[in-house]
Simulated scan of single mutants.
Amino acid sequence: MGKTKNGIERLMNSFKVYDEIDEKVYHDAHLLLNIYSDVLWGIKNSYTNIVCECKEIYGNSSVAVLDVMTEFGSDLKAKLLHEQLEDAEASKVIIDIINSALLRLKTYPKKGEAYHKILNATYFSDKKYEEQDLLDMLELSRSTYFRQRKKAISLFGVISWGYVLPEFISNMRLD
């Protein structure tokens, strides 16, 4: 774990997160956090549709039926369902990357838990808080919240693209 923390600190320095925020990293990470709930909803909705269609067409809700059908290429509907499944799988990878980056953020030695709490309450909570309720819950002033949120988003971005994504890619190549 010490090796990872030192590596994250080096990455943070290269992205200038301590002194100034790398605007591209911040912007991209902020976009990713903003789409998280949409992606989560999409994967849930897509999976539900796939299961329903598979059950309707084949009398079985098992998506394994799709693999057999698309191998033979005998049914256009099966191909479409298979494509939907692949889209859902891609969305799941995004969710896994985000969740993994959040776990790493939480263990970061310099305000990692505080940053995790901010991002969790802002982007991942089932309840959408009014600004004042959010500030009260986090026990932060408005200016401190926005300053720390920006640093949390930037650190999340560095961890996502600097560590988690390369690990996912490396693991995919090994499979």
Rank of each mutant, 00 (worst) to 15 (best):
L155T: 11
L31Y: 08
E86A: 14
S74T: 06
K117V: 01
F72E: 15
E20V: 04
I95Y: 02
C54E: 01
M1R: 03
L138T: 07
K117H: 15
N171V: 14
R10L: 08
S74N: 06
T107Q: 13
P166M: 02
I159S: 14
K77R: 07
D22G: 03
L174Y: 04
L81V: 01
S160Q: 12
T107S: 15
L135Q: 13
N6Q: 10
E23A: 13
Y18T: 11
F15I: 03
I50S: 01
N34K: 15
G73F: 04
D126I: 11
K44I: 05
I94M: 12
D136N: 14
S141H: 02
S170R: 13
D87G: 09
N6M: 12
D19Y: 03
V25D: 01
K127N: 11
Y26E: 12
L105F: 02
T107F: 08
P166L: 01
D136L: 07
V39C: 01
V51Y: 04
E71H: 06
Y129T: 09
K79H: 09
K24P: 00
I153K: 00
R173W: 08
F146K: 05
D126Y: 14
M137W: 04
E86L: 11
M12R: 11
K3T: 06
Y18H: 15
W41T: 03
M172H: 09
K110Y: 03
C52K: 08
K117W: 00
L174K: 12
V63F: 05
T122A: 06
S74W: 09
S37T: 10
K106D: 13
K5P: 00
L81C: 02
